[in-house]
C-alpha cells in the first residue's frame, strides 16, 4: 500500500479538481495571471490538470503599465512556453488621464488601473469565470472567501449572495452577465506555495531572488527604481542594495526587502525565519482598515 498523501499532494489534487470543474461547467473561462509566485503555481496546476493538452483557456494580464519590466518579459516567455493565448488588457482611459501611483495615490490608482481595468476586460471578452491566485491566509477578510465567489452583472461581490460551499460540490450556475471568480489555491499558505515551487521546479520571476538593485528609501520602504518614471523627492538618493521581493505588483507600490537569498531554499529559509507577513510589503493593505473588504465589494480580486 502506498503512503498517505502528503499535504502538497492533497492541495494539488484539490486545486486540479477545482480547475477541471470550471472548464467542465463554464463556457468561457479565463485565468487571471498576475505574474507573481501564486500565479505561477496556479498556472502550473492548470497545466497538470489538462496534460497532455494545454489548458483550454487563455491567460489574461491586466497591465497597469507600472509593472516591473522583468515581470513583463517573464509573462511573455511563460505564455509562449505553455502554448497559451495571452490577453493583455490596459485601461486606456486611465492611461489617457495620466493616472499614476505617484500623483493620484495608491488607492485611486489601484481602483482605476486594476479594478476598473479588470472589469473592462471581463466585459469586453464576456468571460463567465475568472481564475485568480488569491489565498485565504493572505489577509483576514479573505478567510471566509468562497472558492467559487459569485459576482453580479456589474462585478460586485455581495456577501449576502455568496453560496454555502460543501464537500467539493461547487455551485457553478449563473445568469447571463453574472460571473464567478474562482480561487483554486484558496487553501494554500505562503509556505505551501514556496515548497511546491521548490518541489516542482516551477519558474518564477527573478525579482524574487536577491540581487543588487537600485532602490530609494521612501516612507520607510525600499522602492526599486525600475525606470525613469520614478522621480526622486528632495533628499532621496538612489542606492544600490542587495534586495529581493516577497510579493510582486506595481513597482512604485511594492517594497523590496534587503536580502542575500539568491536560491529558492534560501528564500524559503528567509521566509521561515522572518517575522513579518508578506502583505506588509503591499501598500494597498495600509490604506485603511477593512480596505480589502471594501475593494472586494467594488470588484477587486
Amino acid at each position: 500500500m502506498s503512503k498517505n498523501l502528503t499535504h502538497l499532494q492533497q492541495l494539488e489534487a484539490e486545486s486540479i479538481h477545482i480547475i477541471r470543474e470550471v472548464v467542465s461547467e463554464f463556457s468561457n473561462p479565463v485565468m487571471l495571471y498576475s505574474i507573481g509566485k501564486d500565479s505561477a503555481v496556479m498556472l502550473h496546476l492548470a497545466r497538470k490538470a489538462f496534460y497532455p493538452a494545454p489548458p483550454p483557456f487563455p491567460l489574461m494580464h491586466v497591465d497597469t503599465t507600472w509593472k516591473f519590466r522583468e515581470m513583463i518579459a517573464f509573462r511573455d516567455k511563460m505564455a509562449a512556453e505553455c502554448g497559451l493565448d495571452l490577453i493583455v488588457h490596459v485601461n486606456e482611459e486611465g492611461v489617457r488621464q495620466g493616472i499614476s501611483p505617484f500623483t493620484h495615490g495608491s488607492s485611486l490608482y489601484t481602483d482605476i488601473m486594476k479594478t476598473e481595468g479588470l472589469k473592462q476586460a471581463l466585459d469586453r471578452y464576456k468571460f463567465d469565470a475568472a481564475f485568480g491566485g488569491a489565498r485565504r491566509d493572505e489577509e483576514k477578510s479573505r478567510a471566509k472567501e468562497r472558492i467559487f465567489s459569485f459576482r453580479s452583472a456589474n462585478h460586485r461581490w455581495d456577501p449576502k449572495l455568496q453560496r454555502p460551499e460543501l464537500w467539493n460540490l461547487y455551485n457553478t450556475r449563473i445568469k447571463p452577465g453574472e460571473s464567478i471568480r474562482v480561487f483554486p489555491i484558496s487553501n494554500w499558505t505562503e509556505l505551501d506555495v514556496w515548497q511546491y515551487i521548490h518541489l516542482e521546479n516551477i519558474p518564477i520571476v527573478p525579482l524574487y531572488y536577491a540581487a543588487v538593485r537600485p532602490v530609494v528609501e521612501r516612507d520607510g520602504m525600499l522602492i526599486m527604481v525600475d525606470d525613469d518614471r520614478l522621480e526622486l523627492k528632495p533628499g532621496e538618493t538612489v542606492q544600490y542594495k542587495s534586495v529581493r521581493f516577497r510579493t510582486l505588483g506595481c513597482y512604485p507600490l511594492t517594497a523590496a526587502v534587503e536580502s542575500e537569498a539568491a536560491t529558492l531554499p534560501e528564500i524559503i529559509q528567509e521566509m521561515l525565519l522572518t517575522r513579518t507577513s508578506e502583505r506588509q510589503g503591499r501598500m494597498i493593505d495600509h490604506d485603511s482598515a477593512g480596505s480589502m473588504e471594501k475593494k472586494k465589494q467594488e470588484g477587486y480580486f
Binding site: 492533497q10 515548497q195 531554499p265 524559503i268
Partner: peptide, 21 residues
C-alpha cells in the same frame, strides 16, 4: 524548528515534504 531551518534548510524542506494534512 528554527535551528534546523538555519543550519540545514534542505533537510528541513525534505522533512516537510512528508507532512500530511
Amino acid at each position: 524548528q528554527s535551528e534546523l531551518i538555519e543550519e540545514d534548510i534542505l533537510a528541513y524542506l525534505k522533512s516537510h515534504e512528508e507532512k500530511t494534512m
